[in-house]
Design a protein around this nucleic acid. Sequence first.
DNA 1: CTGTTAGCGCGTTCAT
DNA 2: ATGAACGCGCTAACAG
Lengths: 359, 359
Amino acid sequence: MPGTPHGPESGAGAPEGGGPAARESRSGKATLRDVAERAGVSAMTASRVLRDDPRVHPATRDRVRAAAAALGYRPNELARRLRLGRGTGLVGLVVTNLANPFYSRLALGVDAVLAPDGLKTVIGNTRQDLDAERDLVADLVGRRVDGIIAVPAGDDQRHLAAAAAEGVPVVLASRPPEGFAADCVLVDDFGGARDATARLIARGHRRIGFLGSPPAVYTGTERLRGYRSALAAAGLPADERYVRQGQTQPHQAERAAAALLRLPDPPTALFCSNNRNTIGAFRALRATRSAAALAGFDDFELADALGLPLTLVAYDSDELGREAGRLLRARTRAHDPATGPPPSTRRVVLATELVEYGG
Amino acid sequence: MPGTPHGPESGAGAPEGGGPAARESRSGKATLRDVAERAGVSAMTASRVLRDDPRVHPATRDRVRAAAAALGYRPNELARRLRLGRGTGLVGLVVTNLANPFYSRLALGVDAVLAPDGLKTVIGNTRQDLDAERDLVADLVGRRVDGIIAVPAGDDQRHLAAAAAEGVPVVLASRPPEGFAADCVLVDDFGGARDATARLIARGHRRIGFLGSPPAVYTGTERLRGYRSALAAAGLPADERYVRQGQTQPHQAERAAAALLRLPDPPTALFCSNNRNTIGAFRALRATRSAAALAGFDDFELADALGLPLTLVAYDSDELGREAGRLLRARTRAHDPATGPPPSTRRVVLATELVEYGG
DNA sequence: CTGTTAGCGCGTTCAT
DNA sequence: ATGAACGCGCTAACAG
């Protein structure tokens, strides 16, 4: 038996309420000191054991381990991270609509790259609500996430700029930073849309409609630019009656497409700036038995099974997430000591590819 | 300059590196004391101001606010929560495959219910990997999440039982707890599958194939039970050659379906236990120009556009998430003082509905 | 109205 | 091999 392990005495001030169970009542969870007391050692020794510090007597080691197991002890990560000051191991992912497969893929890609580094992804859904986005970003910064990957809903990105200015690494996905510097990974929106439109033109179409998201959405306007560029390159007029922006869900797109098809000189082909619009347009074509050709941005499941010829601008949306994760990882590491100066901001653009689905 | 704000003396050990900038270098973020010093008040007063405690002189209030703004101060939520001991405001959501729309819907439902309570959802993807699931749950518990909503990958749920035993509220979605008590929200797997199969039988089918997930997946086996129940009720033999389990992705399901269709006495109808299998079976039918009838569990986008009659067991997967969120919220509140004893565990079952898509 | 003391749970530094 | 003191950043108690 060892001597009195309690030392000189703990003092006179603290109210030593009822037995040893008193401490555990706080949050219902055992603390390091509970383990230490139960093992008859100091908190310090318990800490060492639980972190596999070799400088502990094997016998004490076992006693502490037993005590920890008996109490179901789990180190409190909050306290731990606070003490270590090395960040939380959390990365915030801000998206507008998780129901869109595009975003769930993005999330998977991000997680695939970050998880091996021990980073957890906190996904926040903003429902296209800018206020919700602001609150979310503020909360993430307050929680001291190690970084933020965001697909901002609009062009007001001051909240992201603020986060970046406060030292939180920020990476934008699918949209470029607006008004501040940050890494980003984009899709070749302009080129993809231009190529798809050009293909419709090559097949003889002269009147081509455009269906897209609200003008505030970056990808939508870039794709519109691509569409217009192809028309201009072929010497075709840019008839604004053929351009319908603002549809964000299939049923809205279906109505917009139907409206185009009812024009006096209806378009003979439609180009859609995202999968929501493509699906809506498809329904409109089927409902009206229209023979108009269909092309769109974004590949999607079952696109090959619609019984209609379909030209899609495809790209690897997992890779979008993975690349965003890599960029963030690079920034995060740059925060470490002497890894050299922070790299200048990078902009990665992913290539697109035209795919044809059969009729 | 005010009197010595340093107090009795800070000691002799700490290396007081150069100037006031030293403190800010730690994590690059200003702390409450930085704000306090800059405003010439104590940390306590600064704290009061930033939490809108009314008991502060308006003039000091403004000085503190100005200092905070100048420093870009953000309270450290970690430290704050640690001190308050009221939990982290984080809820862990454990799913097996975010790419499946079923899970992203679930996540949206959960978030919709929890966000108004100020709870953030941390989504963890396990890729059907039980080890990953164990690690994830352990990490979430270590991070002191306020609760966990999980769709466990297999029937070994000891890690969840442990979490629950440690006092973390646990809610299971889409699968019942195995070996411990917990709230859960389920879909009427048995009834839905039985009804869909019965409908195929009513249409004259006598040889009906079954395509489903691996036997370890609860929903899959329940749905298999429902399928068998319908066969038995109609006095039809249960031919095991017609049952193919184990497909988790469409291309696997496609091969399994093709194999069934090549049998000497091929089934004239197929029932699929989830949307992955239904989509694979659809492809097989199309590829082989088979006229077999198709039914499946889970509704999915574009199911109506496949040019094939299709019977689906539909249910509200958003509601699944919302209900899980509600159950968790109830548990979380039960942790509060004297809200009465914790409610006994609840099991909610969501109804299903048969929908027919045209040919 | 403002400041001091104390401590959330943990880990580092220095002593023994 | 072990322990005491101190502090991460913040806030509830009690002073004054």
